[in-house]
Structure formats: structure tokens, C-alpha cells
């Protein structure tokens, strides 16, 4: 997993609520059996016109959003399917952090597991940044270690982040190796609860 302590980068804005995972990565790309290469298909149906050319009206195609590594979006971002292809596509495209007023639960977890720093912030703070973004290129500094974001106006904004996942992301740890350190507890649980009895037999 990638690891960072802070991300200072250009932003892109998608000012809509309820952006679902079907938009982030449409289903026709879910048949791939790899984890990489999804970036080209991120927001495919919005990003390209029918003839395959870039849609000039789509926010990420605007010049001042090119090269952005932080995505600012509306509420309930990532609702819908559990497809981890959505964060894989965001990551592959180059996004390291996503900021929104709220996230859908499974999507949020999927981001954390891929080292994408997903931060929920108050809608009024975000709208202020969006107003600035509409005028000029906007840079934001997300400091995961201190849990502080420096907005384009220079104002600092603290945010909440699960301490467990903060440590995981900052160190780039492998979650399975971490869990397997508790293997004896798992085995003990299995013995006590006789999970054998749940086994699927035919």
C-alpha cells in the first residue's frame, strides 16, 4: 500500500451529491481481473463523448482540473455498489485524497484500504473552497499526521480520522499481516464457538 503523511496538491471539483460507483467506474470495465489500469475508465460515461473524444464540458477535463490529485465532491459520494474498482480507478487516475461532506460506507472503507485519504468535512467549508475553485486553480494541503487541511484561503481545518486507519495508511502496512498477528485469538474463537458446525457440507 502507498503511504503518506501529507498530500499537497491541486484539486478538482465535482459539485454533485450522490455520485454513485456506477458513474465512477461503469460496469463494462468490471470484467477485468487485474487491480490496475482502471484510471482510463474513471467516470467513463461522463468523461468521453460517444465518439471516444474527451467531453469538454466534464469537470475533470477542464484545464484547471488537469493533474489534480485531490478530488472534492458532493454528499454521499461513492454510494451504490461495493466495487473496489471505484477506488482503484480514482487511485490509478492519480487521486490521493477525496474530500466530501459525506461518503457511502463501503466506498469509504474501500478508499482506506487503498491508501486513499477520504475526509468528510462540513458542507459550508467545502462550498467556500468550491467558490474559489470556480475562479482559479486551487491547491490544498491535507496533513494526515496532524489531521489538518490547509484550504486555499490559508485557513486550517481539522478533520476526524480513524486512528487505526491513520496508522495503517501512514505506515503503508499490510492489513492481513497485521490481523494475522492475532491469529491465536482467531483460533481460540473458532474452537470456543465450534465454527466447524457451520461448515457447508454436501
Amino acid at each position: 500500500m502507498r503511504h503518506y503523511k501529507s498530500i499537497q496538491a491541486k484539486c478538482a471539483v465535482l459539485k454533485r451529491d450522490n455520485i454513485d460507483t456506477d458513474q465512477i467506474i461503469p460496469k463494462q470495465f468490471l470484467k477485468r481481473i487485474e487491480k490496475t489500469g482502471f484510471g482510463d475508465y474513471l467516470f467513463n460515461d461522463w468523461r468521453y463523448l460517444d465518439d471516444g473524444a474527451e467531453n469538454p464540458d466534464f469537470e475533470l477535463n477542464k484545464t484547471h482540473a488537469k493533474g489534480a490529485e485531490i478530488l472534492i465532491a458532493g454528499a454521499n459520494f461513492g454510494c451504490g455498489s461495493s466495487r473496489e474498482h471505484a477506488p482503484w480507478a480514482l487511485k490509478d487516475y492519480g487521486f490521493k485524497a477525496v474530500i466530501a461532506p459525506s461518503f457511502a460506507d463501503i466506498f469509504y472503507n474501500n478508499c482506506l484500504k487503498n491508501g486513499i485519504v477520504a475526509v468528510s468535512l462540513d458542507e459550508t467549508v467545502i462550498s467556500g473552497w468550491i467558490r474559489q475553485y470556480e475562479k482559479q486553480v486551487v491547491e490544498i494541503d491535507v496533513d494526515l499526521e496532524k489531521q489538518v487541511i490547509s484550504g486555499p484561503d490559508g485557513k486550517k481545518q481539522s478533520f476526524e480520522f480513524d486512528p487505526f486507519w491513520k496508522e495503517m495508511i501512514m505506515n503503508g502496512w499490510d492489513e492481513i499481516s497485521y490481523t494475522l498477528q492475532s491469529e491465536s485469538s482467531i483460533t481460540q474463537y473458532e474452537d470456543e464457538k465450534e465454527v466447524d458446525k457451520l461448515g457447508i457440507r454436501s
Binding site: 461495493s82 463501503i106 484500504k113 492481513i176 490481523t179
Partner: peptide
């Protein structure tokens, strides 16, 4: 995500991403 369906039986059933699928395969937790 529609794993929630199984909740009809009074099970705690929820959807997970692929990293979590791998985690459950390896750790059953």
C-alpha cells in the same frame, strides 16, 4: 452491496470490497 438481503433472516449481513474479500479469505474475520 446487496448482501443486506440476507438480513431478512436476522443475520448481520453486509457488502464488502475486494480487499476485504481477500482479508476474510485469509483471516475469516
Amino acid at each position: 452491496s446487496h448482501t443486506s438481503t440476507h438480513g431478512a433472516f436476522g443475520a448481520l449481513a453486509f457488502g464488502i470490497g475486494t480487499s476485504e474479500v481477500e482479508h476474510v479469505l485469509a483471516c475469516q474475520s
